[in-house]
């Protein structure tokens, strides 16, 4: 079921909905203790760079306060992840009093250079709450995400009427009578002054021609 594609990131073929696959090294940690009981936790040995798999597409890499303070080895880790897999990686970083000075450079690196998502947490407790929400998000239907919902189709008529009224000299009444005669903006824009005069009178007809040409 689990195959090794690359030494750095193990490809997981199936994380059941509502489960989180956790690297063995997290067993017994505060974070995992707080996850248990809320969502189902599965342990797996040697997930490599990834700390938590939320689904087949999405995973979390955790950067602790200590990682930040020690130096930039976390950068190498993230670059290796980025090169090794096309999973959607979310970087969770401990932003504490001690590590906050490093946060701007981490953010710049993760978001702007690697193009991954980054979320700061204060401690493992907050991280566990966050992971629970991320797992919920992954297990929901796409329609539940308000930012992924397809927008409803709107009738174009009111907008077209409004667009026509942006032409100098044309108000609502003239816009409507023009549209009866020339049903699209394209038609109207290509009508001759004579054709337009028949609907709105000579002066406005000239104004409309002048606007388009």
């Amino acid at each position: 079921m689990v195959e090794l594609e690359n030494t750095s990131v193990q490809v997981v073929s199936a994380v059941p909905l509502g489960h989180v696959l956790v690297d063995e090294k997290w067993r017994g940690s505060e974070l995992v203790q707080k996850l248990q009981g809320k969502i189902r936790v599965l342990f797996e040995d040697g997930l490599g760079l990834v700390d938590f798999h939320l689904s087949n597409r999405c995973c979390v890499i955790y950067i602790s306060e200590a990682d930040l303070v020690v130096g930039s080895s976390y950068k190498r880790k993230l670059v290796r992840f980025r090169n090794a897999s096309n999973l959607r990686g979310i970087v969770v970083v401990e932003k504490t009093r001690m590590s906050e000075q490093y946060f701007p450079s981490v953010q710049k690196f993760v978001l702007l250079e690697l193009g991954m998502a980054l979320i700061p947490v204060a401690d493992q407790g907050e991280a566990s709450q966050l992971i629970i929400q991320l797992v919920h998000e992954e297990s929901k239907e796409r329609d539940h995400n308000p930012f992924l919902r397809r927008n409803r189709l709107h009738l174009a008529e009111p907008s077209v009427l409004n667009t026509i009224q942006q032409i100098p000299g044309v108000g609502k009444i003239k816009a409507l009578s023009l549209l009866q005669e020339f049903p699209s903006i394209h038609h109207l824009g290509n009508a001759t002054t004579e054709e337009l005069s028949a609907v709105v009178g000579h002066t406005v007809a000239q104004q409309i021609r002048a606007f388009f040409s």
Partner: peptide
Amino acid sequence: DSMLSALISA
């Protein structure tokens, strides 16, 4: 947290 999750996933 749920807002962050939804935005990131979008």
